[in-house]
Design a protein around this nucleic acid. Structure first.
Length: 426
RNA sequence: GUGGCUGUAGCUCAGCUGGUUAGAGUCCUCGGUUGUGAUCCGAGUUGUCGUGGGUUCGAGUCCCAUCAGCCACCCCA
C-alpha cells in the first residue's frame, strides 16, 4: 500500500517526536538568548560558488555530497550543506562589520547532504548552531563552547565528551602540513587507500584515520602542537583556563582535525557513546580566514553546529515509555446523552482553555469506560463527565464522582479551582 | 561511494525443508467483572507478506532486479 515512500534519507517528524525536538529548540533558544545572541535565517539554497569557496573544493561535503541544481534562469544553486558559509555571506551582504563587534548569531535550519543514510545520518537534517563574528579573543571560543555545553546540560544528555584541539593559524598549519607530508611520503604504500589519496589533497585528515596500520604510522608522526606559534599556544591555553572557570570539562585530542577547510586554531567536537558510529553530537571551530576569503574584511570568528536528530536520539535512549502528551483535564459526555450535554461539555472545555488549562474534549463519542481509559492515558488531573442531568468531576485518587453545580460558570470555577489545588500539591 | 544484514497487520514479531481461506502479542473499538481508572474475561476492525519480474501445477517461503531501513567503513551533525 505504500504507493509513495519517503525520499531516501528524509523523515516525517510526528507529534511524538516533536515533543523532544521542541524541548531541544527551547533549551537552545534560552541559552542563546541568555548569552545575547540574535537569531538569523539565511536561504535554504545559495549560489553554488559560495560553498565551493567557503567550505572548500576538496572537502567531501562539497565535492560529493551537495544537492546542486540549475534553476530555470540557468543559475547553479546548491542546497545548504552546512550553516557557516551562509551566515558568513550574510555578514558581508549586510555590512555587519560596521556594527559593534562581535556579531553573535544563532540559527536552526535544515541542512542537505547526499550521503548514505543511517540512524543519525539523514540527507536532510536540522542543525542548530551559532556564529560569533569579529573577535579573535579566546573568551569568544570559551563563551561559544560554554553555551553549547549548557544546552546539552539543560537537556540532561548523558556521557558527553568534549574533544578539543588547536590546529593553529595559517602559517603554523602550512608548516605542519609540509612536515607531515614529508614524514608520511616514505610510508605512502602502507597507508590505507583513502589516506593515500589525502596525502595530496588534505593530509591533515590522515591523522584521524581509523585504519590500524595508518594509525601506527601516524603515532610517530610530527605532532601538531609542536608547530603552533607562541600566539596560537597562548590562545589555546587561555581557552582551556576559561573552560575550567566555566566548569566545562574537556579532553585535549592532538589528533582532532575537522573536515571543513576553513577552521583555524580552535576545533572541538562533542561525542556521545549512545550514538554508535555517528557519535558526534555537535562540533565547531574558529575560522579566522573565512570572511576574508569570501570577499569581506578580515573578521576572526567562531561557531558550532549541532544536529537536532542526534540530540533527540540521545534523549530517546534516555527516556522510553514517557507518554506522548499530557493534559490537565478531560471533559467527556455520556454517549447516551444528547446534544445539550455535548454543548455543556464543549462549554466547560473551551472555558477552561480560556483560563489557560490544557483540556482534552471527547470527540470520538466513546463509551464512558473508554473515556476514562483515555483520560488515564493522558495523565489528567481531573475528569469531567457530562450527561443530561448534570456534570460530575472525578479526581484521580477518589472513587466517587463529585457533582458539579448546575450553573455552568460555577462548575467551571470548581474544576479550575481543583486544578489549581492539585498543581499546588504536586 | 564500499561491504554486510533486514523488509509479513498502527507497533513488536512467528511463519520449518514452497502446498488448501496468512498467525501471535500489543494497540485500538465494543461489552462484562471490579464502587472511577488499572487488572481480569469475552467479541471485533486492520494486511494486495516493500515493489516489479522469473522458476513452478502451486511462492510470504526459491532466483533476479529495484526501492527503503539498519550495521560497519567513508564522511559528518
Amino acid at each position: 500500500m505504500t504507493e509513495y515512500q519517503l525520499p531516501r534519507g528524509t523523515q516525517d517528524v510526528l507529534p511524538a517526536s516533536w515533543r523532544l525536538r521542541a524541548r531541544v529548540l527551547d533549551a537552545a533558544r534560552a541559552r542563546f538568548e541568555a548569552a545575547g545572541f540574535g537569531r538569523i535565517t539565511t536561504p535554504t539554497f545559495e549560489h553554488t560558488e559560495l560553498y565551493h569557496r567557503g567550505v572548500g573544493e576538496a572537502t567531501d561535503i562539497v565535492s560529493k555530497e551537495t544537492y546542486t541544481f540549475e534553476d530555470r534562469g540557468g543559475r547553479s544553486l546548491t542546497l545548504r550543506p552546512e550553516g557557516t558559509a551562509g551566515v558568513a555571506r550574510a555578514f558581508i551582504t549586510h555590512g555587519m562589520h560596521r556594527e559593534s563587534l562581535p556579531v553573535k548569531l544563532w540559527y536552526a535550519d535544515s541542512m542537505f547532504r547526499y550521503e548514505k543514510p543511517q540512524a543519525g545520518r539523514l540527507r536532510e537534517h536540522v542543525q542548530l548552531g551559532c556564529e560569533v563574528l569579529g573577535s579573535e579573543l579566546a573568551t569568544v571560543d570559551a563563551e561559544v563552547i560554554t553555551v553549547q555545553a549548557g544546552i546539552y546540560r539543560d537537556l540532561g544528555l548523558p556521557d558527553l565528551v568534549l574533544h578539543l584541539n588547536s590546529v593553529g593559524s595559517g602559517a603554523a598549519r602550512v608548516a605542519y602540513r609540509d612536515a607531515l607530508v614529508a614524514y608520511l611520503t616514505p610510508f605512502a604504500g602502507e597507508l590505507d587507500a583513502d589516506s593515500q589519496a589525502r596525502l595530496a589533497s588534505n593530509p591533515l585528515r590522515i591523522l584521524d584515520s581509523k585504519d590500524a596500520r595508518t594509525r601506527e604510522i601516524v603515532a610517530d608522526a610530527p605532532k601538531l602542537p609542536e608547530f603552533l606559534t607562541e600566539d596560537d599556544r597562548a590562545h589555546f591555553d587561555e581557552l582551556t583556563a576559561l573552560l575550567t572557570i566555566a566548569g566545562v570539562e574537556y579532553v585535549v585530542d592532538p589528533l582532532l582535525v575537522r573536515g571543513l577547510d576553513y577552521y583555524t586554531r580552535t576545533v572541538w567536537e562533542f561525542t556521545s557513546s549512545a550514538l554508535g558510529a555517528q557519535s558526534t553530537v555537535g562540533a565547531g571551530g574558529r575560522y579566522d580566514g573565512l570572511i576574508e576569503a569570501l570577499g569581506g574584511k578580515p573578521t576572526p570568528s567562531v561557531g558550532f553546529g549541532t544536529g537536532i536528530e542526534r540530540i533527540v536520539l540521545c534523549l530517546e535512549a534516555l527516556e522510553a515509555g514517557v507518554p506522548d502528551r499530557t493534559v490537565e483535564a478531560y471533559v467527556g459526555t455520556r454517549p447516551e446523552a444528547g446534544a445539550e450535554a455535548r454543548a455543556t461539555a464543549f462549554h466547560i472545555a473551551t472555558a477552561l482553555r480560556e483560563r489557560g488549562r490544557s483540556v482534552e474534549l471527547d470527540l470520538a463519542g466513546r463509551s464512558a469506560k473508554s473515556q476514562q481509559k483515555q483520560a488515564a492515558k493522558l495523565t489528567t488531573v481531573v475528569r469531567v463527565l457530562v450527561d443530561d442531568f448534570g456534570a460530575e468531576m472525578f479526581l484521580r485518587s477518589g472513587f466517587e464522582g463529585i457533582a458539579l453545580p448546575t450553573v455552568i460558570d460555577a462548575a467551571i470555577g470548581q474544576v479550575d479551582a481543583q486544578l489549581t489545588a492539585a498543581a499546588a500539591t504536586s
